[in-house]
Amino acid sequence: MTSEIAEVAVWRGDGVQVLRLARPEKKNALTGAMYRALADAIEAGDADDSIAAHIITGSGGVFTAGNDIGDFLATSRGTGDLSTDVVRFIRLLPVVKKPLIAAVDGAAIGIGTTLLFHCDLVYATPDATFATPFLDLGVTPEAASSLLMPQRMGYARAFAMLVLGEPVSADGAVVAGFVNAIIPAADLEKTALDAARRLAKKPPEALAVARRLLRGDASEILQRTDQEVSAFRERLRSPEAIEAFTAFFEKRPPRFDKSA
């Protein structure tokens, strides 16, 4: 069964729920409505005994370009507010009850990378690239990435990604420990589906307990998420962020005030 809400296509079958970002003409950049659709679908799948695992994937050769910059700019200028939908989604990630699998092809930018640190399995194609250019946009890390990325990758790699803004290749992501395997593009979704179907055959209570033990207490992650949200909201309305978003749309380098 397939349905589509707010450019997120949802397919359910064989104990698996697949969430496909379906905005390829905008490189699957996430809008507030898309965050809401993702959160609704994950919560519905978690509450459905027939669903054993979730898969998130992209379309058009792109995972996601991250948050829609237009929404960021509107929020910065006070003409929009995407915070409710975004915060709901990122606070849901640490407490998803059923295994979360990502199938990544092409660019995974911003939230497209940080959400992977909440996934139980991540598969990527050789063309996958990962980047978290938050500082370049005048904002700060989100989705508890300031906690989870140093834990998983080590401080040096996390600093290079989150602060210096260095992208990471598929091979680099495997070495850094947040991608399980590199899969040919033609086999990517099949690999993710096969893994999800294998999980669907496991004893559900034992699966839930094992996953809970492996993931540990989510309270520290949620606390860091809230700290990041506070900082991110403040930065969104800063002159630096407004200049960065404006420069993005005007296709020019940003001009930051160095006197501060």
Rank of each mutant, 00 (worst) to 15 (best):
T2N: 09
T2V: 13
I5P: 01
V8G: 00
V8E: 01
A9V: 14
V16K: 02
Q17T: 11
L21S: 01
N28H: 02
N28Q: 04
A29C: 05
A29D: 01
T31S: 14
A37E: 02
L38I: 04
L38F: 03
L38P: 00
D40V: 05
I42R: 00
D48T: 06
D49M: 07
H54P: 01
H54G: 01
T57R: 07
G60D: 02
G60E: 00
V62Q: 00
V62M: 00
T64D: 09
D68N: 13
G70R: 07
L73C: 04
S76K: 01
F89W: 13
L100R: 06
I101R: 03
G106H: 03
A108C: 06
F117Q: 04
L121I: 07
T125N: 07
D127V: 11
T129E: 14
T129L: 06
P133M: 10
L135Q: 15
L135T: 12
G138V: 07
T140P: 04
L147R: 13
M153W: 12
A156V: 12
R157M: 05
F159C: 02
S169H: 12
S169V: 14
A170V: 11
A170P: 10
A173Y: 04
A176Q: 05
G177I: 12
F178Y: 15
D187E: 15
E189L: 15
K190A: 14
D194I: 04
A195C: 03
A195L: 01
R198P: 02
K201F: 02
K202P: 00
K202T: 05
P203G: 04
P203M: 06
E205Q: 14
A210R: 09
R211G: 11
G216F: 09
G216H: 04
E220T: 11
T225P: 00
Q227Y: 01
S230A: 15
R233A: 08
P239K: 11
P239N: 08
P239F: 13
P239R: 07
P239I: 08
E240I: 05
A241F: 05
E243W: 09
A244E: 03
A244F: 04
K251S: 12
K251H: 13
F256S: 14
F256D: 13
